[in-house]
Amino acid sequence: MTASSLFSLVFLLLIISLFSAALASTHGLNDQSLIQQVVSSDGHDHDILMSAYHQFSSFKKEYNKTYLTQEEDDYRFGVFMSNLLQARRNQNLDPTAIHGVTKFSDLTPSEFCRKYLRLDGQIQLPKHLKTLPILPTDNLPTAFDWRDDDAVTGVKDQGSCGACWAFASIATVETAHFLANDKLVDMSEQQLIDCSHECTDDKVVCNRGCKGGKHILAYSYMLKVGGVEAAKDYPYTGIDTDSCKFDENKIVASIYDFNNIVADEDQYAANLVEYGTVAVRINGSMMQTYTGGIACPPCSDNFNHEVTLVGYGSDRHWIIKNSWGTDFGENGYYMLCKGKLTCGKNPEAIIPFANMTKATY
């Protein structure tokens, strides 16, 4: 880097820092960890020195973003500029991934968490929840992906409804049902959002539709009511309603049990290969900037997102089905390096088991 370009970079970051401080004072924007724009992984400063307004205009066009007033547009531009502060930091913390402008780049971290990571913290596990026996791991496939067997439905989009818990549980049941019945059926997350209000044994945490929930409680609900409808019969709206429209006569899939997996990633892999896709909890905060590659973020005890393991790569990185649409990450998927699923306190990995059914589709 030349002396002149280094000076330009420092000057730009100084201007952005001052602008961010003013923005925080004006709008009460107190977030310290802000998302970044596209940056060069090799340390060159070309991208970061591009016109911020040009990047913002391109962002709005690509993601079809419009704002009701010029004041709101100006505010979002300020947020977008503020996100440059985190550019190098996220890339340096997570160099094997690619971090950049995403459809979430006009959101502050608190807005992003509120809309997409609505998940309560640690819960008391159900008393009846059993842990699966230890499986041998010596002869696991080098790489494995349930998508290769057409056992995984397409990536879905929860929108701004904080119901990742419903999407993770439905995704695993879809695969479990496929393995039991040789039929891949797109099932209804909206049924869970509208109808599943189960709580933990201590009543501290409950499923609350778009306001958050737990996949463990979703499985309990499916056991209680007998199953789940197809998405075509109970379509997704992405909003909370006061009405549960569940029709037991339209059940297309059911489970007879769901079990925990011992907190060991080799066991996660063995159970994934043996029994099907696995619902897990992760920290999704840095996913706001993720555009591709294999993410390897710092460990965290703050599990705020639920997702589905569908496979792993030859280096045992996890292939994760997310629920933010195909315009997130790698065509809707998130690649996570080995070791990050069990490095926090009290990790969870749950797998359901489906009944054979005579339902028509």
Rank of each mutant, 00 (worst) to 15 (best):
G293S: 04
Q86W: 10
S20V: 06
G159K: 01
A166M: 07
H54L: 11
D242E: 12
Y63P: 11
G311S: 06
Y268Q: 07
K61D: 14
C343V: 09
C337G: 07
L49Q: 15
K340L: 15
L117A: 08
I16T: 10
A231T: 05
T289I: 00
H215N: 11
K115M: 10
E274C: 10
I16L: 08
M335C: 03
S196C: 15
R89S: 13
L272K: 08
E189L: 03
G212W: 00
C164V: 03
T289F: 01
L12Y: 02
T26Q: 14
R114M: 06
L68H: 10
V39T: 07
D94M: 05
F258N: 04
E111G: 11
I255Q: 07
P136A: 10
N139D: 12
G227E: 07
R89I: 11
I261G: 02
I123G: 08
L272W: 12
L6T: 14
A279P: 13
D120E: 15
G313E: 05
I98Y: 11
L13R: 05
W324N: 04
V307S: 02
A3M: 05
L68N: 09
T153R: 02
I35W: 13
A230Y: 03
G226F: 06
A171S: 15
F144V: 08
F328M: 09
A176C: 02
A270C: 04
A253L: 00
V280H: 07
S196N: 15
A87I: 01
P298D: 08
L119G: 00
A176I: 02
P141C: 10
T102P: 14
I216E: 04
C343L: 09
